[in-house]
Design a protein around this nucleic acid. Structure first.
Ligand SMILES: [Mn+2]
Ligand SMILES: [Mn+2]
Ligand SMILES: [Mn+2]
Ligand SMILES: [Mn+2]
Lengths: 253, 253
DNA sequence: GAGTTTGATTAGGATCGGCTAACTTTTTTC
DNA sequence: GAAAAAAGTTAGCCGATCCTAATCAAACTC
């Protein structure tokens, strides 16, 4: 079924794709980036459509050379598809940083707005915002912002909170959650990027955590999405002296 | 064919309409605001579709109670339709001011970007931008920005350059053009809002204008879209002063 | 005021992206 | 390894928005 003589559009930019197509590519990328297979069902959940719709769209994207797929198996991005996906991710995270820093959005308000704007802003807008913010490399959730050349830094030194042994100390650097309610939970628990934490113990259902003077159970499902920068010497005091009641939320303004 | 017992949706916000629908409402409003009938053909030109498409969309908008129309006649907005249209206009002009002032866009670059963003930003975004800019009342073209309550100030003291008699002096306050090429022309001629001008004479094809030390013919078609704040005493030369016809005129550009 | 020109509408069709219901394939369970 | 469960696909449909071509109405023209 695959033909080699199809019309080869040179340099397909994200601009020529519909917001819907862009969202599919982005979610495939994010799933792969999180080492998960981009299955029909997962995509359907993330994008908010029915599985049948995903199948249909993936076929169209495959025809355009943006994904490679075999029926009943997870999809993968082609190089072209990946490039576009990263471009959208850059838009999204740059916008989140902008909304947070320049317009004073709250931590939990940025995602939804960026979700819509990411498809609409021009390269000029992207550029101007990057200038204004002096090329930020993290969004408010701690997610790395791809560079203009679409290079994406890996967080190799970060560890999932869920895997830390008792006694570990470190700093929360990244919250890899999409869901609005889950984000609200993180905010209520004051587990934002920058917070110093210590693992008080492990449970079957999660992790007992010491943060900002209080101690509570972080459910495993949540802990798996908190990436921590582990302090070099678990026995010594934490490098960053930043205690307090934890109430004054760490907004990066 | 028209029935009175249609489903009456309460408080329809612009958010529930498609970008396309929003553009139709906006263009109807802008045409009416410029004292032009919103005909099928004019709308088709402004929106960039064929007349047949306009007829189709107007029918749908009429069904939703946003416009009133009779076949072969110009359309009018209902109160609901007008409210939505003004909301979009506010978005558009606020965005233009923001792009210009905060992101450093050039005068001729703002329109296109605002055209896409206006349909996508949330009320929160609108609000935050308005705060950041301290409630601006003009966009970079001199067009008035509707207030949050959707009140739109009229430019009663402004006159079309095309109608000024020889010897008139004044200041360009507003450029009511949509077309990109026309805007570029205005910029090349340095006829931007704020420029002091004097009418050196009238021609059948336009107006001979003195501006910034040089003198040239402004084609009638262009002159009709330049709104001028006429100086009270045509004989006295004054580069920049606030005159008063009994009405306070505040504009920040 | 009959005819012509211009403007508007209708008819029919395409594309896109979603849906449901029915069917097929893969995976899991025992 | 057969049956059941889960996941994925197909077929058929729908609404939104655009298009072209043909028709109809209104507005000028003389
Ligand atoms: Mn999106
Ligand atoms: Mn983020
Ligand atoms: Mn628009
Ligand atoms: Mn403007």
């Amino acid at each position: 079924m695959n033909d080699a003589g199809e019309g080869r559009e040179p340099h397909k930019g994200s601009a020529s794709l519909s917001p819907s197509q862009q969202d599919y590519l982005k979610q495939i990328f994010l799933l792969n980036d999180a080492s998960q297979g981009a299955t029909t069902q997962l995509l359907a959940e993330r994008i908010g459509v029915r599985p049948a719709s995903v199948t249909g769209m993936l076929k169209r994207l495959a025809e355009e050379g943006l994904v490679e797929r075999a029926p009943y198996r997870a999809v993968h991005l082609t190089e072209t598809g990946r490039r576009i996906a990263v471009e959208i991710v850059r838009h999204h995270r740059l916008l989140e940083a902008f909304l947070s820093r320049t317009l004073g959005y709250r931590w939990d308000e940025v995602h939804e707005e960026a979700e819509a704007l990411e498809h609409v802003i021009s390269e000029r807008f992207e550029q101007k915002v990057a200038e204004l913010l002096a090329d930020p490399d993290r969004d408010p959730h701690g997610d790395p912002i791809p560079t203009r050349e679409l290079a994406l830094k890996e967080d190799e030194h970060l560890t999932t909170l869920a895997l830390l042994p008792k006694g570990s100390r470190g700093t929360i650097r990244r919250v890899t959650l999409q869901d609005q309610d889950a984000l609200n939970l993180v905010e209520r628990l004051d587990l934002l990027p920058g917070r110093a934490i210590e693992v008080a113990g492990t449970h079957p259902d999660g992790i007992s955590l010491l943060v900002g003077g209080s101690r509570f159970l972080v459910p495993a499902l949540l802990a798996a999405h908190l990436l921590v920068d582990v302090a070099p010497h678990p026995s010594s005091a934490q490098p960053k002296t930043r205690e307090g009641t934890g109430r004054p939320v760490a907004h990066e303004q």
